Computed example of a mutant assay.
Amino acid sequence: MYLKKPLWSEGIETTKQDSTGSSSSSDPNASVVELVNSLQQQRVYREVTLALTTGLRDARAEFSFLRLRALRSILNFLNSIAHSDSTIYLFNLTQSIPHLQVLPVLFQHSLKETGNDYNYSRVGDMSHIFGVEPMKLTSPSTDDEIALALRVLEGCCLLHPHSTTLAHQHNAVQVLLNILSTRGVLEQSACLDALISLMVDSSPNQMDFEKCNGIMEVADLIRDKQVDENLRYCLLQPVSFILMLIYWSDSSSALFFR
């Protein structure tokens, strides 16, 4: 999201500089400046909602290449708003609106687990042959799509802390641990960063990580000589950070209930 400077905002900076040193009550242009700032905020909010609406529409698509394009767009959008507190605030407001929430779309499409039951319902069920409506086939997520979805997940959790709660509702820790143990190097490296962002200031996700024996999963990857050596080396730093998070959370809980 790259906003162009609106024409009606020209001269506002000059007005602000000219009015430096004078009180706002005595400045006749103060109301104009306030109106322009309000219009600017409304304009940015429309741009934020438009970027999310168009990105999430393709992120729900049945074809992987459309979802991949949408994830790139959403990731670029998150990068563009991360430099301004005002745009981050507007993004946080949009995440309270169900049809603009990013996390549910990620776990329902790009990060959706395809187990045996899912494959059987798609392939073994022949009821669509005798029905009127055609069967909808969804292409599986590619490696690039999963890696991008994990980066988007990481960005949402860092910019919008409540997204960790939404991720917990979708069993995010279990999904990410499955990706970490079954996918390739590209997804595994992105998965580590996403795991850390999930567990920062999130006790439910930290408890899920302990219940799923996450430390043992990561330790097995470190000991596995078939895993890429660079990835095994990169695993050491996240593990120490995760252990520090869990230890700090346990210590805080013990002090609170003492």
Rank of each mutant, 00 (worst) to 15 (best):
V239Y: 04
I179L: 10
C156Y: 06
N230G: 15
D228A: 08
T94R: 01
I129V: 14
N119Q: 11
S110A: 12
K211S: 11
L111P: 04
L153A: 08
Q188D: 02
F241Y: 12
D250R: 15
V218C: 14
P161N: 02
S189R: 13
A219S: 15
Q169M: 08
S84D: 14
S23P: 07
S64T: 15
N171C: 01
I74C: 10
S96F: 02
L243T: 13
E113D: 01
L221D: 12
E217G: 00
S19E: 02
R46H: 12
R57I: 08
Q42A: 13
S23A: 14
V175W: 01
S23R: 13
A70L: 02
A194F: 04
E187I: 11
V152C: 12
K4L: 07
H160L: 02
G11M: 02
T15Y: 00
D58F: 00
D144P: 03
H162G: 12
A61C: 09
Q188R: 15
D85W: 03
F209G: 06
L39E: 10
R57M: 10
T53I: 00
Q188T: 07
R72G: 13
L93W: 01
K4Q: 12
Y118I: 04
G214E: 08
Q101Y: 01
L39F: 01
N29V: 04
D208T: 08
H99A: 06
Q169I: 00
V218L: 15
L39V: 04
